[in-house]
């Protein structure tokens, strides 16, 4: 059990801030000379402080002023109505708006396609017999794996160098789903829990795993490095027993 006192915590924090007084330093020195645990505490806190100060900070300088001023202008137009604008400005707004609508339309189509595919049993590729080996996953074609007590469906969407996987899992008993990939070929861009019961998940470099009991749906987005091709690996385990292991080639 930890015996770190609140007095020691305060003194160490003041030391890290550089605001410790000579008298407080004396007290701290005394505590340190009497307790190994206190020495360890100070050492860990100093290490944390130096790591926090040294953590790589990404300084990005985006150019937002034009965009912001345009948004303000559009809002003002809505508020005040008949504000006159030059043709050039007007054209620029129209063009930007058009891009936005196009982007929304594309996203809508992607979501719509995914939803449609999920509802089309005729296009499901079932694989229940062979519990290992390699299989191809074509974009837009649902893969389904099932057994008596569990069912897993994967909807892959491969667009340019991005693979979106919607993974639906249903299981009577707790089931662990692990998806791993080569970090030379893929970079995990996003992993989201969309619905159902999530009973624990973990992300590591090159793998994502989640536990399901009942039903759950996940979205995993992988960015593919240019020119790199590599399968992803799906593994299902229950009570430390591997039930299913498959190498999936995304196409």
């Amino acid at each position: 059990m930890s015996t770190i006192s609140s007095e020691l915590e305060l003194l160490v924090n003041r030391k890290l801030d550089g605001t410790i007084s000579p008298k407080e330093q004396e007290v701290l020195d005394r505590i340190l000379s009497e307790s190994e645990e206190a020495v360890r505490f100070l050492r860990d806190m100093e290490k944390l402080e130096s790591s926090l100060r040294g953590v790589a900070r990404e300084e990005i300088k985006p150019e937002l002023s034009q965009e912001v001023m345009e948004q303000i202008h559009i809002k003002q137009k809505h508020v005040f109505g008949a504000e006159k604008k030059s043709f050039k400005m007007h054209f620029r707004f129209q063009r930007r708006q058009l891009f936005r609508y196009a982007a929304i339309l594309i996203i809508g189509l992607l979501i719509g396609s995914a939803a449609t595919l999920m509802l089309q049993p005729g296009r499901i590729f079932h694989n229940t017999g062979d519990m290992s080996g390699t299989m191809a996953a074509r974009s837009g074609e649902k893969l389904a794996f099932s057994h008596d007590s569990w069912q897993v469906e994967i909807n892959p969407m491969v667009v340019d160098q991005m693979a979106i996987l919607i993974i639906s899992v249903a299981s009577d008993r707790p089931l662990d789903v692990n998806l791993s990939f080569d970090t030379q070929a893929y970079r995990l861009s996003r992993a989201r829990y969309l619905s159902g019961t999530d009973i624990g998940s973990a992300i590591q470099a090159g793998s994502i795993s989640f536990g399901v009991s009942g039903k759950a749906v996940y979205q995993i987005v992988l960015n593919q490095y240019s020119g790199m091709s590599s399968p992803v690996f799906l593994e299902l385990t229950q009570e430390d027993q591997v039930l299913y292991r498959k190498e999936i080639v995304l196409q």
């Binding site: 900070r57 990404e58 300084e59 990005i60 300088k61 985006p62 150019e63 937002l64 002023s65 912001v68 001023m69 303000i72 003002q76």
Partner: peptide, 26 residues
Amino acid sequence: TQEYKKLVHNYQAAVYNVLYQMLHQH
């Protein structure tokens, strides 16, 4: 109103970075 551009220009990097450090999503 165009003067606001100056304030945006001065603080856009700082505001972006605070948000990025809070969310870690570009």
